[in-house]
Design a protein around this nucleic acid. Structure first.
Lengths: 331, 331
DNA sequence: AGATATATACTCGAAATGAGTATATGTTGT
DNA sequence: ACAACATATACTCATTTCGAGTATATATCT
């Protein structure tokens, strides 16, 4: 084995997600001027598994009980996780960070923590009202420039392909991470410049290049690679939604079908067809009515439902299909 | 931060998978009497990312060039990855192991390595000929006993649910890991006893309990938690097959449609309907004929095809749907 | 009572899909 | 040459899934 052995420490980060009405949110802690995911070191002396380590200090730090948790990915990139903003690279021990997804019903905030909407960090991911204008106005022009600026033809072709997959005609709501990574590499996201020790060129104070090649900083940045972990978490959740009944981890014990639909829509970032949604939910046997009814301000009261735990036993892959709109023309 | 800091080293393990004709295989190295996945330490001083570290020493150790690779999972459990068979726990540094899936076209074997069939390790996962008899004869009886032996009713219900999901009426070929973990916990797999410092009770030399509660060791065991990593790899590959054209990483540059089908069947552990398979492949535009034909020993020659790289650009999720047989009665 | 808002039931057609039949094209044995 | 066989390929058919829409029911507000 080689000389410099294991100067490695393990960091655990958790993207703790919830949804309140129509608003999907993530628990963040303030870390200087920047938002951060709750994170802490893994202490191998006191914890048998990574996950038990995570539960421990998340419990301490955010005063939160994690329900459903799932490991996301282990990042070991040099440069994208500096030990501290002040300390240059190469100084301390190398940090390998293990990211987790955790789901919870949104309750109170703990001290020093705050629930913030997903789409502050990923404004291009919310298609519920309409396709976000920034895609046509900012992202695609910048990506086209990114393609044009490629060093050689092969790289250009690869970049064009990625652009089309990520922001082309058909929207695949699961590709959250792929899109963030593309924007990162294209320099459309603040973390890119921070990680490379540069500044964002589009600084408003600068006099130079007016509107010609203005570079935009899209979305709110986060500490370290935390926005990447959050992107991974959202992507995973959006995918899982379709074949596992994970939404119910985020819902109150009872809910109306519309509330359930709004939650799914919030997570997927898409609108769904109401009648088909309830047909799906009914057919799948995901829920059961409890005979009581909501008392809405306006409109007809809706029956209250609860999750049918039995589904897990019966069906192989019960989830909320987030129907891809049937392609009109184009084949 | 706490006292006992980072006595952690990172191990990288790779499940390198290939398929030769109808035989799916994994590259193993002999480690004493046991099979092991190629593995080695991550050296943070020399590698920018975990993956580059992996490629480096896999290249050295097995003389192999990795093609497609994907991170699987990071395991940190105390007890399931002892530093060495001879050294007791608590002695050395804690090892956190990051598992990878890698795909390659099966070529020569490197020194000290060997291609072994998947189903040596997971004989219950191959349903191509028929449902493996061991499920009815050995696994289900043992699992029923495992349910009955549960300390309390709640645990029993959970265990029964898992038994049904894993080995019940409908077979979900993706749940490779879930099934292995269940067998592990039920003590049907040798690693369980090794990790707990016991011996397998069914030892043939022992005189005691004849056929009454005979405990079987299912499949060939592996070093450390390597069989778990392999299970994760197979599960991931079986899933990915359906929505990404990963099979082609395993195929020769040109192939007949039947060869492609046999490869998919080998990986999925299922038989497929031939006519529908080719319809699917054609509709998806995954392949293109090259005008040449195979020269088989018997039967009509088949056209040779190659992968159409264009698909990646065109379709959002091109893959080989492994059609779940339509449910007959039961609902 | 009528406007409005929401809930729920039902219909329709296109596409996907499981399963099968029919036919084409090669080899081997006699 | 020709039957017997093996494989490839084309096409049919019924069922299921699913997007999209219409129709109707039950509440509140003015």
């Amino acid at each position: 084995m080689s000389s410099t052995k294991e100067a490695v420490s393990i960091g655990l980060s958790a993207a703790i997600l919830a949804v309140e009405g129509e608003h999907p949110s993530v628990l963040v802690v303030a870390h200087g001027a920047q938002d951060a995911l709750p994170f802490g070191p893994f202490d191998p002396a006191h914890h048998r598994t990574l996950e038990s380590g995570l539960r421990k200090w998340v419990g301490e730090q955010t005063n939160f009980e994690l329900g459903y948790t799932e490991q996301l990915y282990t990042f070991g990139d040099k440069g994208r996780h500096l030990p501290s903003p002040n300390v240059g690279p190469g100084s301390g021990a190398r940090v390998v960070s293990v990211g987790y997804l955790a789901l919870t019903r949104q309750v109170r905030e703990a001290p020093d923590t705050q629930w913030r909407g997903w789409y502050h960090y990923f404004p291009w991911e919310d298609w519920r009202d309409k396709k976000p204008e920034m895609i046509e106005r900012v992202i695609l022009p910048a990506l086209k420039k990114f393609v044009k600026d490629a060093p050689d033809g092969e790289t250009a072709a690869l970049r064009r392909e990625r652009m089309n997959v990520c922001f082309g005609d058909s929207w695949d709501e699961e590709r959250v991470l792929e899109r963030y990574e593309l924007l990162y590499e294209a320099g459309l996201v603040e973390e890119f410049y921070r990680d490379n020790g540069q500044e964002m060129k589009q600084d408003p104070r600068k006099s130079a290049a007016k509107s010609s090649s203005q570079i935009h900083s899209l979305g709110t940045p986060m500490l370290f690679d935390h926005r990447r972990i959050l992107a991974t978490a959202i992507a995973r959740l959006r995918g899982k939604l379709k074949y596992r009944p994970v939404v119910f981890e985020l819902m109150a014990p009872t809910f109306t079908l519309l509330e359930l639909q709004r939650a799914v829509e919030a997570l997927a970032g898409l609108r769904l067809h109401k009648q088909n949604f309830r047909r799906l939910v009914a057919e799948q046997g995901l829920v059961e009515g409890i005979g009581e009814f909501s008392t809405p301000a306006r409109g007809r009261p809706a029956e209250l439902f609860r999750f049918r735990r039995g589904v897990l036993r019966e069906r192989p892959a019960p989830g909320m299909r987030v129907g891809a709109r049937r392609a009109k023309a184009a084949v």
